[in-house]
Each structure stands twice: as structure tokens, then as C-alpha cells.
Design a protein around this nucleic acid. Structure first.
Lengths: 345, 345
DNA sequence: CCGTTTTAGTAAAGCGCTTTACTAAAATTC
DNA sequence: GAATTTTAGTAAAGCGCTTTACTAAAACGG
């Protein structure tokens, strides 16, 4: 209990009667010692309760054994679930996670990407939620060791991992078509994002598979927020409900829309069918239980980490990959045949 | 563009024609320089795009400008919201957040608490979800710079921040009493936790205020999970529904119970009233919209950070404080007068 | 028993920054 | 114009660990 501060390698070395180098090298496995010496050191470590100083170690090693996770908003259950999955996977491999939320603060994404430059983190799982003017992509390509997840950064040549948005849209379209809907409203996120585009394309495909060209899709674009869902619902009503079914491109949009539709006395699925996307909120308890496309969020998070760790960052040829994880449709009770008293156009 | 690696203070110093010390001290504000010199340095920094190496800085300064946040499970919306609030508040003050989920892995909490010892983090916001045998408390008291949030670690003498559990229970009790319920089932978390105890006490108080001693509360204890909610609902049914109303002590418990009750065709609030706690999930869209006690989760998160930063950790006298943040009741539609055809005992 | 290999370590140079203690030159005071 | 103060910096010692290059002694081979 000599010195006041926490024990260092020096203290261990002294207590074990060896040099600092010896202890360090033993700890790092680059030296094997006779059992007796090893035991002396082990004992010293135990009795001093020595723990390596992480900052010194990182400075010396030039890496941090920490990965960064950049997401738009942790409070959003979708991202929260993904964060949880990444954290768990990282922990299993002895890595810490530093968490960064961008919260639509411009410049934040750039700032966080720069963290890699000094090994502040060893790699980054990067989730954006808005279009990039090329700046992000350039930075990502320059710094490397980034995997882009959930939403694209178009010009970035790094591994990318998305859910199969097109497939999700297709499932929704097919399901709606089976119930006879040929006039549907698509409420997506920002127009430039691939999630918005691909889900739309899938939806169209699913619908057309049944009805050929005799389908009409209206398309509203906004953000993946409850507030936006409410606005879009209002707009839909103002425009005289120009569809018999709605495909809402996230839980939040669906929630916002339901709030408004309910306030206006519109009954789902009697007056209007609704199908959601994500399925991370407890949609099964909603009134009515909401049919939705489910993203395997945890699996995406786990895979993101694997991608980050398994990618060979030297070979620039193999970097720009795009991996799609399949989604599924969870049929509940928010889709019914088109309401008969709903005059279409 | 000389050396291959990222520029260091040395490079800046050379470019500006001054010493490393000068640059460092200028950057840290411990030296003011003539404008010309200062500009030379600023220019060098800009043109080299110099950024300080965080590890070196931390090692040298002996602090990390990072706070740790330990929670049971990030995927849980309640904790996710709290994490988001803490992260935002920390970011505003220039601090990073390292995130740690315990996920009921024993030993994890202890491991994470030890992070403080080497300034791995400068402080810890600590959220537990199970009883402590004294080990955690001892460690917390030894390491200091910890604030205990949401759930108690009884023997720890550090600042503590909880929602007003008793008040929440009381609101629930009063509300149920006003509808005439005197036989209620309380479904809490682990028995030893203060949230479980205090909410129960509050409930009892609220009920007794109306009915005096003519009340009966059954009490089930479990965990704050959906699975546990389901079990408890099953048990409730097996025991022949010995109450006209249920107070479920978390969103998850309520969700689990509703799932089962719905499967069994029991109608809320006609056959049975239900009131929840937390109100972070979209309970307002449930069938029926769920009345619940709402915790101001974001405010709790923000306050937790303030507490961590504002506490004077030297004065051990002022440390052991307990702050309660008020809750509110959000009345929706899951409580009705006791069902008449529900024979009580 | 001498040369060689193996064993069991060690000394010292960093990693990139902060900080304390100091100094040479210029400006001011008397 | 000598003494003092101010200005404008700097040298060097860490922070605690890793890593490379090296060595003294013991064991081995012939």
C-alpha cells in the first residue's frame, strides 16, 4: 500500500523482483517465463490489484480496442436496438464501444468520422439519415475502417449493409394487392435515400405483379419521425384520401399517421389499410395490430460489427461490397379489402 | 505532406518555427503570444490539419474527458431514452460517452466500475437492475465519481437520482380508487429493489386514502421484462383473477400481460383495469390506450449528468444525497369501474 | 573444457502530449 | 546606464506502457 496512486507496471516489477519489460512482455504474451518467475509476477499483480492503464497502452500500441458507433438518434427504438446489438457483439470480442449521436447536428458526422484518424477508435459503424453531398463519402474513403449501415452514403467505397428494402416494399405491395388495393399511398423518408427509393420500387413491383399497369401509387416524402407521420396523414386527409391503403416506411411514420387518423375518426383497416416498416415498436398491441415489414435489427447490428472486424482493409478492391439482409412480413390486422364507401377519385 | 503519418505537435512546431512547448501551451491557453506568432501557429495547424492525439493527451493529463454510462440493456426503450439524454448532455459539454450494457452478465457491473480507477472514464452514471450484496456498494464507495440512477445500490454513499416511485404508486392507487377498485394486483420488479417497494407503498397509500383498510393488494414480483409480464398474467389467470385492476410496474410488464390477457379474450378495461409505469413505449396507440405513470426519462438523464459534473467529490459529507424527480399520471383509457360480472372472491 | 545454443531476462527508446522550471532578450525604471 | 521587470518563449522531465535490440549466465554438444 505504499504510494498513494494506483499501481503501475513499475510497482509490479519491483514487487516481483524483475524489470518492467519482463512484466509487460509476459502480460502481452511475447515472453514465456519459468513457472516460478511467472508466479511471482502473477502474485504481485494480484496483491497490488494491478490493472494496466488504458491510455498508456493505447498510446503505446497505437490502437484503442474501441469501436465507434455513430447513429442519428439513440432514443429511436430502431437505432437503440442496433446499438444494443453492436455493443453486445463488441463486448464479446473484448472491444469497447464509444457512442455518438448526430441528432441532425450538421458537422457532427464529419467530426465523428475524424475520430478514426488518431486511433481514437479503431473503426466506425456509421449510420446516417440524410443525403450526402459527397463530403461524407470523401472523408469515409480517406479514413477507411468504416462500415456504412442501414442507409447509404453513395460514393463511399466501403462495406455496406442494408436490409433488403426492395424486398420489403415488394412484400408490402404483394400483400396489399392480394387484398385488392391498387391505389396506395407510399409515405417514405427523404427522397434521396435508398431506403425511400428501394422500398418504393419494391412496392410498385409487388403491386404491378398483380394488377399490371392498373395501379396508382401516390408518394409522399418526409422524414422518419412521428411528427412527419402526422403531417403526412393530415396532407392525405386534405387531399381527400386518394388511396385505399398506406405503406408507411417506418414505425415512427406509422405511429404519427395512426395518431392523426384516429383523431379524425378514420378506422383502420375498415376505412383504410395500413402497413408499416421496421416492426421494432410493439405494433402487435396497437389498435388494430399493425401489419408490418420486419427488419432483423439485431442481426444487422451483429453483422455490422463482423464486417468491420473481418474486412481486410488493405485490399481496396474488395472493400466496396453491399450486403442485403432479408426482411419478413408480419401479417397482423391492419390490412383489409378496400373500403367500399371510399370513393376512389 | 512530408511524413506519412498524421501530423503531431512536433510537425506543427517545426512548421511554425517554434518549440513544441509553445504550441502545446498556446493550445491549452497557458501562454499568450504575440499575434504574429499566434497566427503562424494557427496557420500551421490549419494547413497540416493537426488534431491532438487523444490518447497522448489523456495519458498526460490524467483524465479522459469521457464519462461512462452503465445500463442493464440499451435495447430497452426506457434505458435507450436515458442513454440518449445523457449522451446529448455530455456532448454539449464536450465530453464523450462510453457505453456499457450489463445484460445481466454477472461481474460486468464490477468490471465497469473499475474503469474509473485509471481514468479510463472520468465518472460513471450507473444504472443497475438487481439487488446488491454489498459488493457493488463497496466498490462504488471506493472509486467515487459515480452517480446511481433509477434504481438504488443501498449502501453506496454517492449522489442518487430516482423518479418519485412512491408518488407514482400513489397516483396509480388514487386513480384506481376513484374508479372504485379496492382489490388490485401489483406486479412489480425484483422484490428487493426500491422501485418495487416504493411503488407498492405508494399504491397502498393511494388506495387506503379512499377506502381505509378495506383494500386488498396482491403482490407479484418478478422482473421488468415482457416475458415476466406474460408469466404474471398467466399466474393471475390461474389464480382466478383475484383483483379487478392491475398496476404493472413497467411498460414491459404491461406489454407482456396485455399479450396474454388478449390471447385469453379478457377485455381491458371492461373485464379488468390496467395501469402501467414508465410510459416510454407508444402506449397511447394500444388497444385500449393505456393509462400509465410517466417518468420524465430525458430529464432524469440530463440531471444525472449534471449531478456527476457538479458534485464536489472531495467533501464526502455532501455526497450521499437522494434526489427524487416527480412523475405524472397520463390518463388514457385502460381503467374503468370494476367489472360487475367479475366475482370478487 | 571450449564453443554454441538456449534460457531468462533487461536497457533504453519511443508513443504524443503536458507541465514545471527556466532563460535570453527587450523594455522599463530610477 | 545599471538594475529590474516584462516579454517571448524553451528544455527537459514526465504520463505508463510497448517493443526492439541486446546480454549474461546456464545448458548442451562434441
Amino acid at each position: 500500500m505504499a504510494k498513494g496512486h494506483t499501481p503501475g507496471l513499475k510497482d509490479v516489477a519491483k514487487a516481483a523482483g524483475v524489470s518492467v519489460t519482463t512484466v509487460s512482455r509476459m502480460l502481452n504474451g511475447s515472453l514465456d517465463l519459468p513457472v516460478l518467475t511467472k508466479r511471482r509476477i502473477d502474485d504481485a499483480i494480484a496483491s497490488l490489484k494491478y490493472q494496466p492503464n488504458p491510455h498508456a497502452r493505447r498510446l503505446s500500441r497505437g490502437r484503442s480496442d474501441t469501436i465507434g458507433l455513430v447513429v442519428p438518434d439513440i432514443a429511436n427504438p430502431f437505432f437503440a436496438t442496433m446499438v444494443a446489438a453492436v455493443e453486445e457483439a463488441a463486448n464479446d470480442r473484448g472491444l469497447a464501444v464509444s457512442l455518438y449521436a448526430t441528432l441532425n447536428r450538421t458537422g457532427r458526422e464529419v467530426a465523428y468520422l475524424r475520430l478514426i484518424e488518431h486511433n481514437h477508435v479503431d473503426g466506425l459503424v456509421f449510420v446516417t439519415n440524410h443525403p450526402d453531398n459527397g463530403e461524407l463519402a470523401a472523408l469515409i474513403n480517406r479514413t477507411g475502417k468504416v462500415v456504412v449501415v442501414d442507409e447509404d452514403v453513395p460514393l463511399a467505397t466501403v462495406p455496406k449493409l442494408f436490409c433488403d428494402n426492395r424486398q420489403g416494399g415488394y412484400f408490402a405491395g404483394r400483400h396489399l394487392a392480394e387484398f385488392g388495393h391498387r391505389h396506395v399511398l407510399y409515405v417514405g423518408g427523404p427522397d434521396a435515400m435508398i431506403s425511400t427509393q428501394r422500398r418504393f420500387n419494391g412496392l410498385y413491383e409487388g403491386l404491378r405483379e398483380h394488377f399490371g399497369d392498373d395501379v396508382s401509387i401516390r408518394r409522399y416524402s418526409g422524414e422518419y419521425t412521428i411528427a412527419c407521420g402526422r403531417e403526412m396523414a393530415l396532407r392525405f386527409l386534405e387531399e381527400g384520401m386518394p388511396a385505399t391503403a398506406i405503406f408507411a416506411s417506418s414505425d415512427e411514420i406509422a405511429i404519427g399517421m395512426i395518431e392523426v387518423l384516429r383523431e379524425k375518426g378514420i378506422s383502420i383497416p375498415d376505412d383504410l389499410s395500413l402497413i408499416g416498416f421496421d416492426d421494432v415498436s410493439p405494433l402487435h398491441l396497437f389498435a388494430p395490430p399493425l401489419t408490418a415489414i420486419r427488419q432483423p435489427v439485431r442481426a444487422i447490428g451483429q453483422r455490422a460489427l463482423s464486417l468491420l472486424l473481418e474486412t481486410n482493409w488493405q485490399e481496396s478492391k474488395s472493400l466496396a461490397t453491399e450486403e442485403l439482409v432479408p426482411v419478413e412480413i408480419v401479417v397482423r390486422n391492419s390490412v383489409a379489402p378496400p373500403s367500399t364507401h371510399n370513393k376512389q377519385r
